[in-house]
Amino acid sequence: MISDLFSLTVLLGIISSGIRLATPYLFASIGEAFSQRSGVLNLGVEGQMILGAFTAFYVVMNTENLLLGVLAAMGVGALMGLAMGFVSITLQAQQGISGIGFYLFGLGMSNLLFQLLVGTVETVSGFPKVPLPILSDIPVIGKLFFDHNILVYLAFLLVPIASFVLNKTNLGLKIRSVGENPEAADSLGVSVSKVRYFTTIFGGAMSGLSGASLSIALLNVFQLGMTAGQGFIAVALVYFGAWRPWGVLAGALLFSLVNGLQLWIQVLGINIPSEFAVMMPYILTIFVLTLSRSKYGAPSALTKPFEREG
């Protein structure tokens, strides 16, 4: 039975599961990476995600306009990000804990609004699969990598873009300097709080988009509590990726591929208790990170509010 795991069908299955499962993590983790690079830890990603998922779903259900759904989800996420920014930048609140507050708020609100406005579980017609011309005709690989919905492509495209912005642009430099040495950045005339507001709002919008990728692209349904802790995993993956978009991609893919693998292990009837199969992605993520002995440290000013001297 174990040998079945190495057949082509299984391998392709695992990879395509990995790609789909990684999509929401990529959006949320990259957004979170930005805000952490600037020094703000947002533990409320889960709340932003689920509220984004609901918003996108609700808008698409009523308007059947997918773009509007995406924008609305990002807008709601950005609003939550703005609130998070106000609390942690202007009011200098303890970031880990305010994040838990926003998580509970988002969870409760999405649930409440769903009960009041929708009432029963329904489907919407979300983003269709868009096979990329030519590329999707490549045998085997084409179907695997180039036959997804737009948000999947967008998530993967976001990685090089985010990496470029962080490392090669002036904005990226500002973000990094604000996260590493806010005093120095401040003395050079960079507005620490402006940059941090930008990243938390951006992070919120990305989390909202991540929720939308579930509710109107990958699953096309909203169900209560449907993000099921993925927002917390997304935060964890930022640490896995050492605050770097490519690292985040590696983490998201590793976690998702192992998740795909454990589903196949169960489907092939390999005899281990399902609980242990479900544990695998969590254990392996820790394990790989342990082996890799990451040399990167956290942004020095992470979770530290900035206040001008004097």
């Binding site: 988002g106 969870l107 409760g108």
Partner: peptide, 10 residues
Amino acid sequence: ITALNGLVVV
């Protein structure tokens, strides 16, 4: 109640 709980924390 969950949402309210979150507000209090914030």
